[in-house]
Each structure stands twice: as structure tokens, then as C-alpha cells.
Design a protein around this nucleic acid. Sequence first.
DNA 1: GAATTCATACTTGTATACAAGATACATAGC
DNA 2: GCTATGTATCTTGTATACAAGTATGAATTC
Lengths: 226, 226
Amino acid sequence: MNLAEKVYRQLKEDIFDFRMLPGDRFSESEVAERMQASRTPVREALYRLERDGYVQVYFRNGWQVRPFDFRYFEELYDVRIVLECEVVRRLCMESDRAERLAGLVTIWCCKPSQRQVDPVDVAFLDEEFHFGLLECGQNKQMEAIHKDVCERLRIVRRLDFYEPGRIQATYEEHSSILDAILSADSSRATRELTRHIELSRNTVRDITVHRIQEARQRYSTDLSRK
Amino acid sequence: MNLAEKVYRQLKEDIFDFRMLPGDRFSESEVAERMQASRTPVREALYRLERDGYVQVYFRNGWQVRPFDFRYFEELYDVRIVLECEVVRRLCMESDRAERLAGLVTIWCCKPSQRQVDPVDVAFLDEEFHFGLLECGQNKQMEAIHKDVCERLRIVRRLDFYEPGRIQATYEEHSSILDAILSADSSRATRELTRHIELSRNTVRDITVHRIQEARQRYSTDLSRK
DNA sequence: GAATTCATACTTGTATACAAGATACATAGC
DNA sequence: GCTATGTATCTTGTATACAAGTATGAATTC
């Protein structure tokens, strides 16, 4: 793996885990030193992150972790709804939808005793569910765009499943979406899917503010040192 | 403007105007020499173009202009349909849609004598029409993704209006889409819009192959020299 | 004390030098 | 003639040096 690639992933993790907080300013050499690399691969990584929407550059005047903006996240959630609903509508018209969804059905339409309970696992599985839907769409570009949108949302979305009750609710919502698709009930499927995504979005919005405040206190030593 | 930015735009133009043909291999130093720049800004430009889907890098083994792939373009056209139809559906439910569409109406619902006839102008106007729709969606992220998709399609889409009859057809299709939205006839509007985009896509597919062959002959001197 | 100017330190932007790896081709061995 | 191996060349990956611009703060002037 490239050094640039390593730096890219590390920076992303730092941002995701709130070690670098929204609004923080930093310089290329600072990152280079921390990552034990020269500025060249760091710059490459930073420009990728900029295109991903995580950081922004100020001309000859440093970088900044993109400040949080809930309008931004909500708009991305909206895009997710549009893309996923489109795929679901198509699926409802396909005769082999049962086979295509078989994998998802075994995971989500199981007995309560067989359900995953760890928030991290469920966050991963939830992502797989929505990616799985897009895979059924037979449109690689739409899939790529959807993946990109989900990636941008990951920073807030992972917090969803720490909220009490959201894991159980997710199981029920997913299985009823799958049920609707299998019944070829397009309007019910899209309605349930939209509701599911909106619920997740609303939960996340409420949590995120607190998480950032927590992180800001946790790393306050680092900041004051500087 | 950055040197990297200049190189980025120039390379894009070279690819769009078929001076660099799909499938062509090239190296960073080659480009740097042609653009009178060092490899650093060239690399930055190339990595941006890679993310845009125009070129690809082979590890320590040079670059390539992305070979044409109609499946790729058709999938992107599909994404356009999904996004634009979504916005149109929303517009049909807004009470102030007449004011929002006023600009587009004066351009497209005019007398035949007032219509633009130059293919380049019409290509520009057509793009503005579809961007204009997305602007009405009040979702900046969706708008940005749509712009991105259109940008990727520009390389083939600009050929559309050189086909006899497509300019006139575009005027009629656009005005009937606008008419349907103003009548709040959501299903007719999306049907017309889908048909319009599909027609454009089909025209383009037929033309593009010939254009590349033409360009390949036109620049054959350059290639054989090398 | 307030405003202005100038110097300094710090930032990114760009060029260049070198390292590491891939490819192609010639050459040796069979 | 065929295969294997080694070398030369070319490629990108990375580090570093320098150029150009920005912000900050101290010194100066009023």
C-alpha cells in the first residue's frame, strides 16, 4: 500500500474518531511529522479528503477539518433515500427478487434470539443491508455514488446504534422492507425504507452534538498544550 | 489560478476534444513537458482526473485515458434520470413552481424564430436547463452529485446536437416538460423527462463511435511519429 | 493610546533529486 | 529454436529545497 494511501486512511480515522475535530485548523507539515512522512504523500491524501468533503484548504494558509453542518448531512440522507427507493422500485418488478434478496433475508428476518447486539457489528450489518439493496440495482455507477454518499455519512451514522432501542428497531424495519419487496408491494417498500432512513437520520442528529462536545473535552489537554 | 488547476483543465480539454484518445497510454513527465510544468502539479491534476473517471494509473507503470465503455455512460444517464425525476416530482408539489421556472420558460417556450440554432450554444443551454431543474430541488448535495454526473457525460453528450433534428426536438421536449410541471402533472412530467434523456442517450451512443474513429485518423500523424 | 508600516515566521505551491519497482530486450545456456 | 536470466531503461513514489504569498506582531509615527 502507498504511503499516501496510509496517510489518507489514518487521517480519515482521526477525523471519524474525533481526534481531529470539526473546525480544527492544521498544516501539512504538522500532519507529515505526526505520520512520519514527507509533505508529498500528505498533500495527496489531503486533496483526496478535500474532494470527499472532510477537510478544506485555504490558499497558502493551512487546512481545516470541515465544520459540521447538519443541513449537509440531511441533504445526503435525502440522496440516499432517492437512490435506494429507486432500486427498491426496480426490484419489485423483477421476478427473481427472492433469490437476490436471499442473503439479506437470512440475516434480518431471523428470530430475536439470533440477532446481533453489538452496536459496532450492527452498524456494519446495516451498511451491508443498504449496500446489498444497491447491488440489486444492476447499475455500478449508481452503486458507486451511493457508496460515496454513505461514506460521507459514516461519521455521523455510526453513532445511531448506541441509542437504546435502535438495534431492535433496525431489525424490524429491515425485515418489513424486505417483506414488502418480496410481496412486490412497491409503494409500501419505499414508504418503509424512507421511514427507516429518516428515523436513523433523526436519531443521529440528536446524538452527534453531544459526541463532539465529549471529544472536545477528552482531547482538551492536547489542544491546550498547543 | 493554480498551475495544477490549469493542467487539470487543459488535460480535460485534451480528452474532451479527443486529442488524447480513450485507451491512450502516457506518462507524467510527458504531460509535464507538454504543459511546461513540473511533475508535482501534473500529478495533482492526474489524481483529480482519476477520481473523475477520465484516466487511470497503473502502479509504477504509467497512465491511461479511460477506455470508452457505453455501459458506463448508460448507467450515468440512468442516474441523471433518477435525480432529475425526483426534483421534478417535488416541483410539482410546490405552489411557487411557476416563479422558479420562469427563467427556463422564457428560454424554451418561445417562438421557433427565436430559437438558438448553433449546436454549441444549444448544448450549453440544454445543460443549463437540466442544472436549472436541479437548482429547484433545494438540495445542494444532490445538485453537486448531478453536476458531477453531467460533467462525466459531457464528453459524449456534447455530440448530441450535431445530429440533424435534435435541436428542434430538444426545444419541443423541454417545453413539454415545463408545461407538465406547471400543470402539476407529476407523472406526465417525469415520463416526458425520462423520454427526453433517453433520446439524447441513444443519439449519442450512435454518434460517438464515429467521432473517435475520426479523431484517431486526424491525429494519426502524431501517433505514428511517436 | 491608536493607527500604520515593516519585518519575520509560517503556510502552501512548485521544482527537482533520488528511491523503488516494472517492463522490455538482449544475451547466455540448453 | 526456446527458455531463463540479467541488465538497462522507463515508470511512479517519496523526500527535500526553494519560491511565493499570508498573517501576525513589534516597532514607529502621529
